[in-house]
Lab assay of single mutants.
Amino acid sequence: VTVHVNRYTYHFDNPEEAEKFAREMAKRLNMTVEIHGNTLKVE
């Protein structure tokens, strides 16, 4: 599972951890999480 935050890319083996990380980053940056299959984008 890949998480994109701005120009950074993070890889996770565990989808739940990836989503938790993405949501935490989105909250911190006041952004939203978009899910595209195995890719989560924080925008």
Rank of each mutant, 00 (worst) to 15 (best):
V1H: 09
V1N: 05
T2S: 08
T2E: 08
T2H: 10
T2F: 12
T2Q: 08
T2Y: 11
V3L: 03
V3R: 00
V3F: 00
V3W: 00
V3Y: 00
H4F: 07
H4E: 11
H4N: 06
V5D: 02
V5K: 02
V5G: 03
N6I: 10
N6K: 07
R7F: 12
R7L: 10
R7D: 13
R7G: 15
Y8M: 13
Y8I: 13
Y8Q: 13
Y8N: 11
Y8A: 10
T9L: 10
T9A: 09
T9R: 07
Y10N: 00
Y10W: 11
Y10A: 02
Y10H: 03
Y10F: 12
H11W: 14
H11Y: 14
H11Q: 07
H11E: 05
F12Y: 03
F12P: 00
F12D: 00
F12V: 00
F12L: 01
F12C: 05
D13K: 09
D13A: 10
D13C: 12
N14L: 08
N14G: 07
N14K: 07
N14H: 08
N14Y: 06
N14C: 06
P15D: 05
P15I: 15
P15V: 14
P15Q: 13
P15R: 15
P15M: 15
E16M: 12
E16C: 06
E16Y: 12
E16L: 11
E16R: 10
E16Q: 11
E16S: 10
E17Q: 09
E17W: 05
E17H: 07
E17G: 03
E17L: 10
E17Y: 06
E17P: 02
E17M: 07
A18K: 00
A18V: 01
A18G: 11
A18F: 01
E19N: 07
E19Q: 09
E19H: 13
K20C: 08
K20D: 11
K20Q: 12
K20R: 13
K20F: 08
K20T: 10
F21L: 01
F21I: 01
F21E: 00
F21M: 01
F21Y: 04
F21N: 00
A22C: 04
A22F: 03
A22P: 00
A22K: 02
A22M: 03
R23V: 09
R23A: 09
E24W: 13
E24L: 08
E24V: 06
E24Q: 07
E24D: 11
E24F: 09
M25L: 14
M25S: 04
M25W: 13
M25V: 14
A26L: 03
A26M: 03
A26P: 01
A26N: 02
A26E: 04
K27M: 12
K27F: 13
K27T: 12
K27D: 14
K27A: 13
K27G: 11
R28Q: 13
R28W: 10
L29R: 01
L29V: 03
L29T: 04
L29C: 12
N30D: 07
N30Y: 04
N30C: 07
N30A: 05
N30W: 04
M31E: 03
M31P: 01
M31K: 04
M31Y: 06
M31Q: 05
M31T: 14
T32W: 06
T32E: 07
T32L: 09
T32G: 05
T32Q: 10
T32R: 13
T32P: 05
T32K: 14
T32N: 09
V33C: 04
V33T: 02
V33Y: 06
E34F: 15
E34R: 15
E34S: 15
E34Y: 15
E34Q: 15
I35D: 04
I35G: 05
I35F: 12
I35H: 10
I35M: 09
I35V: 12
I35L: 07
I35W: 14
H36Y: 13
H36T: 09
H36V: 13
H36P: 01
H36A: 10
H36N: 13
H36E: 10
G37F: 06
G37H: 06
G37D: 06
G37E: 06
N38R: 04
N38D: 09
N38I: 05
T39V: 15
T39D: 10
T39W: 07
T39L: 11
T39F: 08
T39Y: 09
L40K: 02
L40M: 13
L40E: 03
L40H: 04
K41F: 15
K41D: 04
K41H: 13
K41V: 15
V42A: 03
V42I: 11
V42R: 01
V42Q: 03
E43T: 15
E43W: 13
E43N: 12
E43I: 15
